[in-house]
Every structure is written in structure tokens, then in C-alpha cells.
């Protein structure tokens, strides 16, 4: 690097660092973060901007396209996460900058475009785990600006994917706190993939009567025990944990199946298939005791599906 360029870069970094404490992002103010974390992030972002500007450009272009994309969108949300998958961890600084330090054009977006954009970029923070991002997710989980259900859901999920003790404590605490955000936290809690999450979700599922919310809870339990997650995460050290989380999830889901009807029961059946615990058949047999004829038929059908699924493949 030529000396003039180096000076320019240093100046830019200093300028950026000095302004970070006052900066305002799309969901957080820089001051919401502990100073040490803030400085680490600011430096990380500054370096990344110099070394690898492409993810920043993509984020900015995508943000500016959001109004048009939202106008022609199909379904609930404009897809955003996929735009960062190619860059993997390289995308994280650009996203953190937007969330914490520089809100960009986010305030000009309509509510649903804003939700799509923010949920999309936050989800990236869970897909490509980096310890530097975790403080941001902790702050987001407490932020008053994070209140829309889907946003709370992806923040919880992204923090869950970090699977640290701090993440677990914070998520369980948030899940116990009554209020409008509680349900979003519960819906994302399964992505923590722990027995503690499954146990908390079991309580929530037992108390929930709304069909749509029961489905979210069931899918959260499914996420915790998802065999696809565990297959990739598997190491010799957490084999026991995998077994216990999937077992707990399966048991909660069988209970959910028994206590549900219609599409909620079908969602529980699908979730049981996803968890795919070896003890499932025994649990389904046991559940047939004292079951009504209709429930018994449903259990037998699920048993048959589990034994011989048309699409789900068994792999180690």
C-alpha cells in the first residue's frame, strides 16, 4: 500500500471510530453496546470496508432496490438473506454497520419492506456465526426497536445459533418475560438447540391455545431437535447432547401431536419426522393407550409414516 493510501485509510478509520459512539444504526445506537465491543466492531468494519467492499456495495444496492422489490414482491417478504450467502462471513461487517452504526435508507422504507430487509440481514448473522457479532445480537434482543414478531423471531434465532452460555441465559430470560416480544423469542428459541430451550417450549406449548401460535411453537421445538442441524454439528463431544435434545424434542412433539387437531397436529407430525429420534415408534405406541379412536388412527398413520416415509430418507 502506498503511503498516501495508508494515511488516508488511517484517517478514515480514526474518523469512523471517533464518530461511532454517536452513530445510529437501523435498529441500535452504537451507544447501546459496551464501549469495548463497539470499538472492536468499528475497527472490524473499517478494515473490511477497505479490504473487501463488495458486501457493503451489495447491501447498499439491495437496500435502495427494496421499494421496487417490495412493490413487486410475491408472498410475505422480499428475499434478502440469499444475497449474502455467497459472501458468507465477509458479509457480516456490512450488516453490523447497517444495524448499529449507519441506518442508511432504512427509515425511508415501508414497514413491510423494512421488516423484510432487517429480518433478512439479521438472519445472516445467525447463518455465519462470529463471536464479534454476538454482542450485537444481545443488544438487539433487548432493543425496543425490535418488536415486530418476525424480527424478534430472527434475532432470537440468530442469537440461538451462536449457542453460547450467554446466549442461552439471555434467550431463556427473554422467553420468560411477558410482553409482546415474548412469543417471537419463543418462536426462535428452538434454534438454540438445547434441552433447556425444549423444556421452556414445552411449557409454552402446554399453555398456548391459538392454533397459529401452537404451530410456531411446534416448529420451534422441531428446530431444536432437527436432525439436519445435528448431522452437520455432530462431533464426538456433543453426541450425548444431540441424543438428549432430540429425545426431549420428540417427546414434546408427541405430546403436541396428541393435544392438537387439524393442521396443528399435522405440523407436529411433520416435526416428529424432522427430529427422527430412534425412540419415536415406542413413544407413538405408548401414546395409543387410552387414546380416542380418532387419535389412535392418527397415531397409527404417523407410525406407518415414520416407519416408511415416502420422501424422508434415513441417513446417518
Amino acid at each position: 500500500m502506498k503511503s498516501t493510501n495508508l494515511i488516508t485509510a488511517i484517517a478514515a478509520a480514526l474518523c469512523f471510530l471517533s464518530s461511532t459512539a454517536l452513530a445510529e444504526g437501523a435498529l441500535l445506537k452504537a451507544g447501546d453496546l459496551p464501549e469495548s465491543d463497539r470499538d472492536v466492531l468499528a475497527s472490524w468494519i473499517s478494515d473490511a470496508k477497505q479490504a473487501d467492499p463488495e458486501p457493503f456495495r451489495v447491501l447498499k444496492r439491495l437496500e435502495s432496490q427494496m421499494p421496487a422489490l417490495n412493490a413487486q414482491k410475491r408472498g410475505r417478504f422480499v428475499p434478502v438473506t440469499r444475497s449474502f450467502r455467497h459472501y458468507q462471513h465477509r458479509a457480516l461487517p456490512a450488516i453490523v454497520e447497517r444495524l448499529v452504526f449507519n441506518g442508511g435508507e432504512i427509515s425511508t422504507l415501508s414497514e413491510d419492506a423494512k421488516t423484510a430487509f432487517l429480518t433478512g440481514i439479521v438472519q445472516v448473522l445467525g447463518e455465519f456465526v462470529d463471536v464479534r457479532v454476538e454482542p450485537v445480537l444481545h443488544a438487539l434482543l433487548d432493543a425496543p426497536s425490535v418488536s415486530e414478531f418476525h424480527l424478534v423471531y430472527v434475532v432470537s434465532g440468530a442469537l440461538g445459533w451462536h449457542r453460547t452460555a450467554a446466549a442461552e441465559r439471555h434467550l431463556l430470560s427473554a422467553a420468560a418475560e411477558p410482553g409482546e416480544r415474548q412469543f417471537g423469542v419463543l418462536a426462535g428459541l428452538g434454534q438454540l438447540h438445547t434441552t433447556s430451550a425444549v423444556e421452556r417450549l414445552a411449557v409454552a406449548l402446554r399453555d398456548e391455545t391459538d392454533a397459529q401460535r401452537r404451530k410456531w411453537l411446534i416448529r420451534s421445538v422441531r428446530d431444536a431437535g432437527n436432525r439436519g442441524f445435528w448431522r452437520i454439528a455432530r462431533t464426538s463431544s456433543d453426541a450425548a447432547e444431540e441424543w438428549s435434545v432430540r429425545l426431549a424434542a420428540m417427546q414434546v412433539l408427541v405430546d403436541g401431536f396428541i393435544t392438537s387437531t387439524d393442521d396443528v397436529q399435522a405440523a407436529a407430525a411433520n416435526a416428529i419426522m424432522v427430529v427422527d429420534h430412534p425412540d419415536t415408534l415406542a413413544a407413538l405406541l405408548k401414546a395409543q393407550y387410552n387414546a380416542s379412536p380418532a387419535l389412535k388412527r392418527a397415531l397409527v398413520a404417523l407410525q406407518e409414516r415414520f416407519a416408511n416415509p415416502p420422501l424422508m430418507r434415513r441417513r446417518k
Partner: peptide, 18 residues
């Protein structure tokens, strides 16, 4: 090698199967 895509593989397959 993606945990997320692997997890979504299982979830989406089960839903299609349903």
C-alpha cells in the same frame, strides 16, 4: 456443509411429504 441448509432440508422435506 451448511447447518442451516441441512436443517431446512429436513424441515422442507417433511412439509412436502405432509
Amino acid at each position: 456443509n451448511s447447518q442451516q441448509l441441512s436443517a431446512e432440508l429436513e424441515s422442507s422435506t417433511a412439509e412436502v411429504e405432509g
